[in-house]
C-alpha cells in the first residue's frame, strides 16, 4: 500500500505540474508512475537527506520527458520541499521539462533518447570494478528501443556481466505519433532482449505486488543484467488519458485537471486511506 499511496500522490502532483506549466508528456509520465513509486518506496537504497550518499543505489530516467514522475517521487520522498514543484517548467527553473541533474536526487539529465542506458552501464561497470554493492536502475521507453545505442549498451552490459544493472522498459505500445507496432515493430521484444544477453522478466507494470516481488529478487540470473519488460498503459490512472496518443502532447485544461484529480481521489477513497494532504 505504501507504494500505491506514493503512486497516487505522484499522479496528483504530476497532473498539477503539467497543467500549471502547460507542459506535454503527461501520458508518458503516468505510464511509469507505478514502477517509479515501487522503486522509491520499497526498492532503492537512497537517502533523501543526503542525495550524494556514496553507497546509494543509482536511478536514471532515460525517457527524460516523463520527468514529472520522478520530480514528484523525489519531492514526496523528501529530497526537496513539495512547494518547489511549483517551479516546474518556469523560466530559469532547475525543474526543467526534461529531467535535470540540477534537481536534488537526479543523477543524470536526459531528453534525447538512447542516452540513459549507456550512462547507467558505465556506472554499473564502475561499481563492479570498484567492488561496490550498490545497484543501477534505469527506466527506458519502448519507442526509445529504436535507438541503436541501447542495443550497443545491452551487448556491452551482457559482455561485462553487469548483474548489478536493472533495466526497466516502459512497454506501453504507444510512441510519439502512433503505436509502436506501426512505427518500428519491436516484437518479439522479450526474445530480442534475451538474445542480447539480458535476464528478462515480463510483468504488468502497474501491478505493485508483482513489481515489488521481482525487484526484491535481483539479480535474476548471476552474470546477466536484469531487464524488466513492463507492460503498461500510457496515461494510466486517468480514464480519458489512457491509451490516447494525444496525451503525449496535450496539457490538461483546468476542467480536465479537476476530473483527473477526482478520479485519483476516488481511488484513494476506495482504499479507505487518509491522504488529505495530497491535493
Amino acid at each position: 500500500m505504501k507504494s500505491r499511496l506514493l503512486a497516487n500522490t505522484m499522479r496528483v502532483l504530476a497532473l498539477q505540474m503539467v497543467t500549471r506549466a502547460k507542459a506535454s508528456h503527461i501520458g508518458s509520465a503516468l505510464s511509469i508512475m507505478d514502477m517509479v513509486a515501487v522503486l522509491y518506496a520499497e526498492i532503492l537504497s537512497v537517502d533523501p537527506g543526503n542525495p550524494h550518499w556514496s553507497d546509494r543505489d543509482r536511478f536514471i530516467l532515460s525517457k527524460g520527458h516523463a520527468c514529472v514522475a520522478v520530480y514528484a517521487a523525489l519531492a514526496a520522498q523528501g529530497f526537496f520541499p513539495l512547494p518547489e514543484l511549483e517551479y516546474y517548467g518556469q523560466d530559469f527553473s532547475d525543474l526543467m521539462n526534461h529531467i535535470s541533474h540540477k534537481v536534488p536526487g537526479v543523477e543524470f539529465s536526459t531528453g534525447s533518447l538512447g542516452h540513459g542506458l549507456p550512462f547507467a552501464v558505465g556506472k554499473a561497470l564502475a561499481a563492479k570494478r570498484q567492488g561496490k554493492r550498490w545497484r543501477v536502475c534505469v527506466v527506458l521507453s519502448d519507442g526509445e528501443m529504436d535507438e541503436g545505442s541501447n542495443w550497443e549498451a545491452l551487448l556491452f552490459a551482457a559482455h561485462h556481466r553487469l548483474d548489478n544493472l536493472l533495466v526497466l522498459i516502459d512497454y506501453n505500445k504507444l510512441q510519439s505519433l502512433t503505436t509502436v507496432a506501426q512505427t518500428l515493430a519491436l516484437e518479439p521484444l522479450a526474445d530480442k532482449l534475451r538474445a542480447f544477453g539480458g535476464a528478462v522478466v515480463e510483468v504488468d507494470g502497474h501491478d505493485h505486488a508483482a513489481l515489488r516481488a521481482q525487484c526484491k529478487t535481483l539479480p535474476w540470473q548471476t552474470g546477466k543484467p536484469s531487464v524488466l519488460l513492463a507492460h503498461t498503459v500510457k496515461g494510466k490512472g486517468v480514464s480519458f488519458m489512457e491509451n490516447q496518443v494525444i496525451w503525449h502532447y496535450r496539457n490538461p485544461s483546468e476542467e480536465q485537471l479537476t476530473q483527473a484529480l477526482a478520479e485519483l481521489a476516488a481511488e484513494r477513497e476506495s482504499w479507505g486511506a487518509a491522504c488529505g494532504a495530497l491535493s
Binding site: G114, P118, A126, S149
Partner: peptide, 15 residues
C-alpha cells in the same frame, strides 16, 4: 560502438 562507448565513459567518469 562509439555512442555507447562515450555514454559508458561518462557513466564511469561520474563514479
Amino acid at each position: 560502438a562509439e555512442q555507447n562507448m562515450m555514454g559508458v565513459a561518462a557513466g564511469m567518469a561520474s563514479e
